[in-house]
């Protein structure tokens, strides 16, 4: 049988196949339905969110926190927050997360060159200095927090990031330290069927 699991970085968003059994909507508790925001008119919930519904108390906090970090007003641009997310996703080899956020980065920045280079040349991709500084810092923080140093933060300031933007980068890279550990560990990215 042909292996359908995707092992290379891509901007084409795969399907996600869980390694544990997701919560069944028909058997969900009221608490779970509330966290899933299921209403009679909205019954579409992804397998990923149904898996996370097993820990409903965490899911309830996680979704609004995720949105605040990635979409909150001010600070780092949306596209550069996606770079922070990508830095972690490349380090942690989360193919699914990398695809979703490379696709968003390409749409937001109207440019596919940065993510093309990142996926083909990896961590040594030649990028313009601001993107380079963002990725270097995001990757170090993702790999081993102690690897990031004051020199890396100084490089961000030199590349033009202000303190608010640096904080948003810390948050987006760190957030994907969380998201990657769920998506990459609890399931497989597989080729879309049908």
């Amino acid at each position: 049988m042909k292996d359908e699991v995707i092992r290379r970085f891509t901007r084409t968003v795969p399907e996600w196949r869980p390694r544990v059994v997701p919560v069944k909507l028909a058997e969900a508790t009221q608490d779970q339905l509330d966290a899933l925001q299921v209403t009679p008119s909205n019954t579409k919930v992804s397998d990923y969110v149904l898996v996370l519904a097993h820990d409903v108390e965490t899911l309830k906090v996680r979704s609004p926190l995720f949105n605040a970090i990635m979409y909150g007003q001010g600070g780092l641009s949306r596209a550069e927050r996606e770079l922070g997310a990508l830095a972690a996703s490349v380090v942690n080899h989360c193919i699914y997360c990398a695809a979703v956020h490379a696709d968003r980065h390409a749409q937001l920045s109207k440019d596919t060159a940065v993510t093309d280079k990142l996926f083909t040349m990896g961590e040594k991709a030649d990028l313009e200095p601001r993107d380079r500084a963002i990725l270097d810092f995001g990757m170090k923080l993702a790999r081993t927090p102690q690897q990031a140093t004051a020199t890396d933060v100084a490089a961000l300031r030199e590349a033009g990031l202000d303190e608010g933007e640096i904080l948003d980068l810390v948050l987006s890279s760190a957030l994907f330290g969380w998201a990657n550990r769920l998506m990459h560990i609890l399931g497989d990215p597989v080729r879309k069927t049908g």
Partner: peptide, 8 residues
């Protein structure tokens, strides 16, 4: 990671 980044 958030703690490490803030500290830096």
């Amino acid at each position: 990671r958030l703690i490490a980044g803030l500290r830096l």
